[in-house]
Simulated assay, not measured.
Amino acid sequence: MIQLRSANDRGHANFGWLNSYHSFSFGSYFDPQHMGFSHLRVINDDTVSPSAGFETHGHKDMEILSLVLQGTIAHKDSTGNIEELPAGEYQLMSAGKGIYHSEFNASDQETLKFLQIWIQPNRLGGEPGYQQKAFGEEEGLTNIITPDGESGTLAIKQDMRLHQLIMSEQTQLTWQADAKRRYYIHLIEGELSLADGINMKPGDGAKLQSISQIDFTKLSDKRVKALLFDLA
């Protein structure tokens, strides 16, 4: 079963300095039909004005992933990490027993665009953690996150994996799935088909359950970039 979630149906909040679209219930946006999917709790598509950002605030018992699409994030947290996260890089912060951090647009001229993703952990408490890495733009599916950080991936406190999908040259790609697991696809750019009549545009999401394979088909000359979440 594949259930499409249109970008136009997402929640929306505009604070002037921040323009954000919510795939799942978040902040003032509440939809009981979209409270998350498996352990995936938040996908916020954020646009931040130059020099603006999120003042210091706290998190606890949450795995927080950021992927910069345009610009650079200036990150600072209570464990002493002071980092810049440029476009294309992934940052995974494990809040553990508690962490405070701030995120700002590092530029006073360029707009910042990034995805903020929250995943509920399967282990509570513990020391906070910070990981950051670029995985490039290799054609096909690239492993980004695994439970044990295998083969240089980012390690997460959950039975889930994240894959980056890039289709520049390929027009079709088939991925073998486990019918006992659940999958979520978030399309970042391009146009993508998952099956007859199930076509995705940027910002769209898709929930997949009880399937044994996923057939990706690029629908235009534009490059496809997407995230594939493999969830328990």
Rank of each mutant, 00 (worst) to 15 (best):
S168Q: 10
S168C: 00
S168A: 08
E169F: 01
Q170K: 13
Q170A: 08
Q170W: 00
Q170T: 04
T171P: 01
Q172H: 04
Q172S: 06
Q172I: 01
Q172W: 00
L173N: 06
T174Y: 01
A177I: 03
A177N: 08
A177H: 07
D178T: 10
D178C: 08
A179I: 12
K180M: 06
K180P: 03
K180H: 07
R181P: 06
R181L: 10
R181S: 10
R182H: 11
R182L: 04
R182E: 10
R182C: 03
Y183A: 01
Y183S: 00
Y184P: 01
Y184Q: 05
H186T: 08
H186V: 04
H186S: 11
H186Q: 14
H186L: 04
L187K: 10
L187Q: 13
L187P: 09
L187T: 12
L187S: 11
L187A: 13
I188G: 09
I188F: 14
I188T: 11
I188M: 13
E189N: 12
E189K: 07
E189T: 11
E189V: 07
E189M: 10
G190F: 11
E191P: 12
E191M: 13
L192W: 10
L192T: 12
L192V: 12
S193I: 03
S193F: 02
S193V: 03
L194T: 12
L194D: 08
A195S: 15
A195K: 13
A195H: 08
D196E: 15
D196R: 15
I198A: 14
I198S: 14
N199K: 14
N199M: 09
K201H: 14
P202G: 14
P202D: 15
G203V: 02
D204E: 15
G205I: 05
G205S: 12
G205H: 08
G205P: 09
A206K: 12
A206E: 15
K207W: 06
K207L: 07
K207G: 00
L208E: 03
Q209L: 05
Q209N: 08
Q209K: 07
S210P: 03
S210M: 05
S210L: 04
S210N: 15
S210R: 07
I211Y: 04
I211D: 01
Q213S: 10
I214T: 06
I214D: 04
I214G: 02
I214Y: 06
D215Y: 00
D215N: 14
D215K: 15
D215V: 03
T217N: 08
T217M: 05
T217Q: 15
T217E: 13
S220H: 12
S220N: 14
S220Q: 13
S220I: 09
S220C: 11
S220R: 14
D221P: 01
D221F: 00
D221Y: 02
D221A: 11
K222F: 02
K222H: 11
K222T: 12
R223Y: 04
R223S: 14
R223E: 15
V224L: 09
V224A: 12
K225V: 09
K225F: 05
A226M: 06
A226E: 01
A226H: 05
A226K: 00
A226L: 06
L227G: 04
L227R: 05
L227N: 05
L228K: 04
F229C: 02
F229P: 02
F229V: 04
D230Y: 01
D230A: 02
L231C: 09
L231N: 10
L231P: 07
L231R: 11
